[in-house]
Computed example of a mutant assay.
Amino acid sequence: MLEAETLTARLEQLVRWGNPLRSTHTVTATGIAEYQRSRSRYQLSKLGERVQRVQSWREADPKVLGAFATTVTRLWRETAAEDSAPWKVARAGHAAELKALLLVTP
């Protein structure tokens, strides 16, 4: 179970990314607990709705999935070759790992 602070931080990050929106529903709170519950209401943004409609990689056509994984891996390798910043090199490695995972997962 997540701590309240961890959950709040994760929700705030999602809000910054534009996934959920804070609910604009106004509540007249009669106590602290009610106030805290009322400010923890979110609704899915338009972006969040689009993200939810994206097909799961588990349901994707294996050929399409392979092409996607190959392309992402190549792009990150090219990016790391142009600029060898440690995070870019690491990202290229992660892309290669993802490609290997996607190509062997049934």
Rank of each mutant, 00 (worst) to 15 (best):
F68C: 10
V72K: 01
T71K: 13
V89E: 02
L47D: 06
D83G: 02
G31S: 08
T79N: 13
S38L: 03
P86M: 07
E78T: 15
L21Q: 11
A100M: 02
T6Q: 15
R39N: 05
A92S: 04
S45Y: 00
R77V: 15
E5W: 04
A85W: 05
V104F: 01
A96N: 02
E12T: 10
T70Q: 14
V54M: 15
R22F: 05
Q36V: 09
T79I: 11
V54T: 15
Y42C: 02
A80E: 05
W17P: 03
H94W: 12
T73A: 12
V72P: 01
T24N: 09
R53N: 14
K63I: 14
V89C: 03
R10G: 05
R74G: 10
A81C: 09
T28S: 14
L7V: 10
F68Y: 13
D61Y: 01
E59C: 04
L21R: 03
W57A: 11
A4R: 03
G48P: 11
R74S: 15
R22S: 08
E3F: 07
L7D: 09
K63G: 11
A60T: 09
A29I: 10
L44Y: 00
R16H: 06
V104R: 02
P106G: 12
A67Q: 10
D83E: 08
V54P: 00
A96V: 04
Q43R: 10
R16D: 13
T30W: 05
E82R: 04
P20C: 01
V72G: 02
A92D: 02
T105R: 04
L2M: 14
V89K: 00
E97V: 06
H25Q: 12
T6F: 04
T8E: 11
T105E: 14
L11Q: 06
Y42I: 00
V15M: 03
A33F: 06
A90H: 07
A4C: 09
G93M: 01
T30H: 07
T70M: 13
A100R: 01
E78M: 14
R58L: 13
S23M: 01
E78G: 07
G66W: 03
A81S: 11
Q52P: 03
G31V: 07
K63Q: 11
E12K: 05
G48E: 00
L44K: 00
L14E: 04
W17A: 11
W87N: 09
A4S: 15
A33E: 06
P86V: 08
A92V: 02
W87F: 08
S40C: 10
A60S: 14
T70I: 13
E3T: 15
K88A: 14
P86S: 09
S84H: 08
E82P: 02
Q55I: 10
A85T: 06
Y35S: 12
K99R: 10
E12I: 11
A92P: 07
L2C: 07
L14F: 01
T28K: 02
W57P: 12
V89Q: 00
W57T: 12
P20W: 00
T79W: 04
S45P: 11
S23W: 01
I32N: 02
E59F: 05
W57Y: 13
S56L: 10
P86G: 06
V15T: 05
Q36W: 06
T30R: 06
E97K: 02
L103H: 03
P20D: 10
